[in-house]
Amino acid sequence: MLQALDIHKKFGSLGVLKGVSLQVEKGEVIAIIGPSGSGKSTLLRCLNHLETIDKGTIAVQGEFMAQAGPDGIAFYSPEKDIAAIRHKMGMVFQNFNLFPHKSVLENLVMAPMLVKQTDRLQAENSARELLKKVGLSEKADNYPFELSGGQQQRVAIARALAMDPEIMCFDEPTSALDPELTGEVLQVMKDLAQEHMTMVVVTHEIGFAREVANRVLFMDEGLVVEEGSAEDVIVNPRQERTRAFLSKVLMAR
């Protein structure tokens, strides 16, 4: 479904990704965990083309977004091809990034109408379906500022789903939330996983990763340090760095 091979990314002289590879199969839920600054969010942003990579290959369903040349340097495909690939990816941000001047319903129908030329009636119907799915049917006509953080993030998930993506990416979706509001967002994500949505989730929620993820990647200093089933990585980590990180995170609870 999604292949990322040997991704290198520098910000100035600072190497953020130093050769990261990631394979995602259809219907898989991948959790990426690791300390701040480990490059996990950057990796996700590169997959979404919010950042460009220096070296490596990114392909979705066999179509290249960027392809490595003989020396590894990434060559990006033409704009149009990249746009087509990006249509297959949905993204949920840490800070929701809802459009504050639009009602919840308008947040959901805007992109389908503008990008896919869906007519309003159809767009609104599927938007209401999605709002029902995330449990916010009653909030269709509210504005984002009238919602709690958890509700805003659920709207953001619905907004991404409105474009009917093949893969959903989540960038620390619960990190900006009060602890009592993370549950409702994680529940929506669990529901998605149960429907076999392909998901890549950058998260600090170790419990969620353990429960929902088919595979867990532990990243540190721009590299994947350990990768495997949730059971292997979280319960029986082999690497010292993974153990150190997990003990810190789990102790904090």
Partner: peptide, 11 residues
Amino acid sequence: GQYEAADVLGL
């Protein structure tokens, strides 16, 4: 974030 949200939605 507003630009990024619009960007990932394909606008």
